[in-house]
Nucleic acid binder design. Structure first.
Lengths: 358, 358
DNA sequence: AAAGCAATTCGAATCGATTCGAATTATGAC
DNA sequence: GTCATAATTCGAATCGATTCGAATTGCTTT
C-alpha cells in the first residue's frame, strides 16, 4: 500500500511546461493567461486529477473558507434543523463547517472554541451554553467574526440572531388566557439562557396585562432534560390547587411533562392544557397533538450564516461596526389539540382579555 | 477596527530570546529543552496568548487532525445521535469534525467529498446516500482512510460498521410471528440502501422459516419521507385483505404510517400492529407507544470513529489491509404497545412458531 | 526591420509551522 | 586544565499554494 501523496501545483506546472505562477493564475483567474497555455494547464490538471491543497492556500491567503459552528446539543431536534440551514448557506458561499458539540458544558465549549481559533476559522456561529462572557471574550478578544445564534449571552455586542422569544412568550400566554385560563403554570427551563428568560418575560407581560399574578408555586425552573419535565409535571399535578394550563419553554422538558400527565391519568386538554416549544415531524403524532410555538429553525441557521459571512466581509474591508440590534425572527403559534378551555366551573369569567398588539 | 493578526512562533521566539526551533521543541516535546529555556518559552507563550497555527502545522506535517463526516440527513434523529458519538471519540483523540450534509443527494455528496479531499482531511466517515461506487472511488482512489457507517455501498472493501440489520429484521418479524400474525406487510424504504435491504432479508428469512409467503401487495417501497409512509399506509389499510401487522424499516416513514392509521380510525394495536425502527426521546410519548428496533446509534458513531482513527494510523504505518469483515452491532427489540396479537378470529392457529436462535 | 508599448509569463519571496543536520555548550574523566 | 562525549540549541530547508515586480514575448506602428 503506497502512501498517498496528492499531486501539487508543481506537478501540473511541469506537465504543462509552464510556471507555477501561471497555473495559479489559471486556477484563480487573477491574471490573464493566453488561451493556448490555459488549455495546456487545464488539460494537465485534468490528467493529474489535481485539486488545489486547501491547507496551503489557507496559509498563504489567511482565509480558511471555514466557519466554526458550536451547538449545545445536537440531539435536540431544534439544532439539526438549524444546522441544515447553516449547511445550505455555507455551502452556497463556499464555506465548510467545522462542527463542535458542547454538550451544554461550558468547559467543553471553551475547548471547542479554542480549537476553532487554532484552526483559524474565518468566523464562528455560536449557540452558547451559558450566558457568562467567557465565550464572548475568547472570540472577541481576537476580533474573530462571530454571530451568536438562538442563545445570546448578556452584554454581547456582536451580531446576533434569534427567535423573538419575548413575543413568542407573549403570544403563547395570551392564547391560554383567551381560552379562559387563569391558573397558568410555567416550566421555565434554565434561567441563565436568553431564550428562556425572554419567553418568561413575555409570559409575565401577558399575565400582567390580564391582571393576573404569577404564583411562586407555579413558577418552575430546572435543567433542560425530559426528566426535569417529568418531575416538575408530577409536582404541579399534585398541587392542592392544580394549574389548568402549563406553559413549557423547552421541547425536551415538554416531553417529560407529557409523560407525567399520562402517568397521572390526567386528561389533556380536558383537565390541563399544555403549550410548548418547537416542532418536530412527530409533534403531530403525539397524543394529544401538541400545541406549540414553532421557531423558524432553518431560517435561523440560514440567515445567521449569511450574517456571519457578511460580518467576515465587513472585517476584511476594515469598516466600522454595524447595527448592534439583534435580528429577531417571528415564531408561529401552532394550535393543535393540547390546549382547550379549562374544565367547567373554572373558566368563563374572563374569556376575552383586552390587549393591544405588539 | 484593527485587522486581527494572531502572533506567531516567531514572536514567541523573539520574546523568549530563543530560536523558533526551540519553541517548537517545547510545544511538541520532540526534543529535550533545558528547564530554564522551557520556562522562558512557556512564559512568552502565556504572555502573548499564543496558540500554534493549525493550518501551518498541517501543511508541514501533512496531517490535518480533522475528519470529514458525511451524513445524508441531519434532521433524521438517528444521525444526531451518531454524530454525538463521533464528536466524543474525535475530540478525545484530538480530531476536529468537518461536517457535510448530503441531503440524500448523490451530487451534493460528491461535492462534499471533493471538498473534504481538497481540505486534506485525515479520514472520512461516510453514511452515503446511494450504493453506487462513485463515492467509494472518489475517496479510495486517493487512498484516503475511510469508514463507511450505517449505509454500506455494494462492493466496498474499506472498514465498515453498521447495525446487524439482517438480524434486526429477523428478530422484528419473529416478534410479529410469535404474536400470531400471518398477514404481515412491510414498508421497505429505498431498496438501494443496505440497511433496508438487509432488514428485508431478515424479514424474508423469518417468513420463510414460518412457511409464510411474502405477498406482492404487502411489499411496499418508496422514499424515506413521512409522506411516503402516509401514502403507503393509506393504501395498505384500504386493501380488501388488510394486513394485521406492518413492519416498517425506516423511522420517518413510520411517522407517516402512524398518521395514516390515526386518520383512518384504525386502532393500533387492536386492529393492526406496527413495528418500526429507531428510538427517539419521544417514541415513548406516541399514542400508542411504539414498539421499535432500537439501534445503538451513539455507539455506532463512537466505534466508527475509533475504527477510522485506527485506519488512519494503519495507513501511516504502511501496513497492509486488515480484516474486510464489517463490524455489526446488535440492535435491540424494544417492545412497547404498538404490537399485539391480531384481531380475534385471525390469530390463534399458530401462536408459537418453532425456530432456532441465530 | 527597429522601436515602443501592451500583454503575458515567470522567479522568488512569503505564509507559520516542523525537522534535520550542524554548531554550540555543558559535563565528566583523566 | 584539556579533551572527548553528551546534551542542547539553532540555522535553514521545506510543505504547497499566492502574488508582486521584473523579464519576456508579441503586436503595432513607422
Amino acid at each position: 500500500m503506497r502512501r498517498r501523496k496528492s499531486c501539487t501545483i508543481q506537478d501540473v506546472a511541469r506537465l504543462a511546461t509552464v510556471s507555477v505562477a501561471t497555473v495559479s493564475a489559471v486556477i484563480n483567474g487573477t491574471v490573464p493567461v493566453s488561451p493556448a497555455r490555459t488549455k495546456r494547464v487545464r488539460d494537465a490538471m485534468e490528467a493529474l486529477d489535481y485539486h488545489p491543497d486547501h491547507v496551503a492556500r489557507s496559509l498563504k491567503t489567511g482565509k480558511t473558507q471555514a466557519i466554526g459552528m458550536v451547538v449545545p446539543d445536537v440531539t435536540n431536534p431544534f439544532y439539526p434543523e438549524v444546522i441544515r440551514g447553516v449547511e445550505q448557506a455555507a455551502e452556497r458561499a463556499g464555506y465548510s463547517i467545522i462542527f463542535c458539540n458542547s454538550n451544554e458544558d461550558p468547559e467543553q465549549e471553551r475547548r471547542g472554541l479554542q480549537t476553532l481559533i487554532a484552526r483559524r476559522v474565518d468566523g464562528a456561529l455560536i449557540a452558547c451554553c451559558d450566558n457568562t462572557s467567557t465565550t464572548y471574550d475568547l472570540v472577541m478578544r481576537r476580533n474573530i467574526p462571530a454571530v451568536f445564534l438562538d442563545r445570546i449571552p448578556a452584554g454581547v455586542n456582536a451580531p446576533r440572531i434569534s427567535t423573538d422569544n419575548f413575543k413568542a412568550g407573549l403570544v403563547a400566554t395570551r392564547h391560554l388566557l383567551e381560552l379562559g385560563h387563569e391558573r397558568i403554570a410555567v416550566v421555565a427551563g434554565r434561567m441563565n439562557l436568553s431564550p428562556h428568560v425572554d419567553r418568561i418575560e413575555g409570559f409575565r407581560k401577558a399575565m400582567q396585562e390580564a391582571g393576573l399574578p404569577v404564583k411562586d408555586e407555579y413558577f418552575c425552573t430546572g435543567s433542560l432534560s425530559s426528566d426535569t419535565g417529568y418531575v416538575i409535571g408530577k409536582r404541579l399535578l399534585e398541587l392542592e390547587c392544580r394549574p389548568t394550563a402549563i406553559f413549557c419553554t423547552n421541547n425536551k422538558t415538554l416531553l417529560g411533562l407529557v409523560r407525567a400527565l399520562g402517568e397521572s391519568q390526567v386528561k389533556c386538554p380536558e383537565e390541563v392544557s399544555i403549550l410548548g416549544f418547537d416542532d418536530f415531524a412527530w409533534t403531530e403524532n403525539f397524543h394529544p397533538k401538541l400545541t406549540t410555538i414553532v421557531q423558524p429553525a432553518h431560517e435561523l441557521g440560514r440567515r445567521g450564516t449569511e450574517m456571519l459571512i457578511q460580518e467576515i466581509k465587513r472585517q476584511e474591508g476594515d469598516v466600522g461596526p454595524v447595527s448592534s440590534e439583534p435580528i429577531l425572527l417571528e415564531a408561529q403559534l401552532c394550535i393543535r389539540q393540547s390546549t382547550a378551555p379549562p374544565p367547567n366551573g373554572e373558566a368563563g369569567l374572563r374569556t376575552q382579555v383586552g390587549y393591544s398588539t405588539v
